[in-house]
């Protein structure tokens, strides 16, 4: 079975975020991590491989330096990586990103494609569904459990209220929720081995995509300005159990609600 995990590089959730002069999120190399939601799809891909055998491939679209992020996924255990990188891709919106990922997936081939439920930079959560549309395939979205037997993929899906079961024929695209599994940490051995694994790079030309259909110019929307939201919170931290209850009571009294 050929399993592809789509992984995005995002700034760490604790990093200070700023807009650049172009009104795009400034991405600093030292803050780059695997989108935390994608650790669950990497883990799920590895578990499916343990069950069914085959190959696991990490696919990412991003700057040339995103190979470092792919390498982290390879350290968790994935077999190889593919990075789609091209200067013309800068500033691509979700639809353009999906266009590129769909073309790369067609080139790589797949039985199962896994996505995170959203990327922690903009909390879009729309790339997986757009990829499915470009590929003309159904998407099993927001899975909290995945069973796949080679012909059918079946998920438990987190709905707005409650859950339901959804199934489709394979090849299948699935986006997963955090509760689906507990991602592993890369082992020392995994980290060593990841250094020898291959990461192929593809350009837009390799995928046969016109540069006019992606990048900032093709984006359907643009940011005009940004403003700090001024609901200033006090942000006081009280460490430890001792005296914590008294501090809360004193706080409630200070605020005149007790």
């Amino acid at each position: 079975m050929k399993i592809v995990m789509c992984v995005k590089e995002t700034p760490s959730t604790t990093a200070e975020k700023r807009f650049g002069a172009d009104m795009r999120l400034e991405r600093r190399k030292e803050d780059a991590i695997i989108n935390p939601f994608d650790e669950y799809s990497i883990e799920e891909g590895l578990r499916q491989q343990e069950k069914h055998g085959g190959e696991t491939i990490v696919l990412s679209m991003g700057p040339a330096t995103a190979t470092d992020t792919i390498r982290k996924a390879l350290a968790m255990g994935a077999d190889r990586g593919v990075l789609v990188s091209d200067p013309a891709l800068a500033g691509s919106d979700a639809v353009a990103t999906a266009r590129v990922l769909a073309a790369a997936l067609q080139k790589i081939g797949f039985d199962l494609v896994l996505f995170g439920s959203a990327a922690a930079d903009a909390y879009g959560g729309i790339v997986p569904s757009a990829v499915a549309e470009f590929l003309g395939l159904p998407l099993l979205s927001f899975a909290t459990k995945l069973d796949e037997d080679g012909t059918t993929a079946k998920i438990e899906r987190q709905a707005e209220v409650g859950y339901n079961t959804v199934e489709t024929q394979t090849p299948a695209l699935v986006s997963v929720m955090k509760s689906i599994n507990e991602p592993r940490y890369p082992s020392m051995k995994g980290i060593m081995q990841s250094k020898k694994k291959t990461i192929d790079t593809m350009s837009l030309a390799d995928l046969g995509i016109e540069s006019g259909t992606v990048g900032a110019g093709a984006s359907g929307e643009k940011a005009l300005s940004a403003e700090k939201i001024t609901t200033q919170r006090k942000g006081e931290i009280y460490m430890g159990n001792d005296g914590a209850a008294e501090r809360v009571v004193a706080f409630l009294v200070e605020q005149k609600v007790l």
Binding site: A94, V95, G124, G125, I126, A130, A132, E133, G220
Partner: peptide, 17 residues
């Protein structure tokens, strides 16, 4: 999210979320 992303991809529509 699921519906709008597909529509945007299919019809080439701008989308803000």
């Amino acid at each position: 999210r699921d519906v709008s992303a597909r529509l945007a991809a299919r019809l080439g529509l701008g989308i803000e979320y």
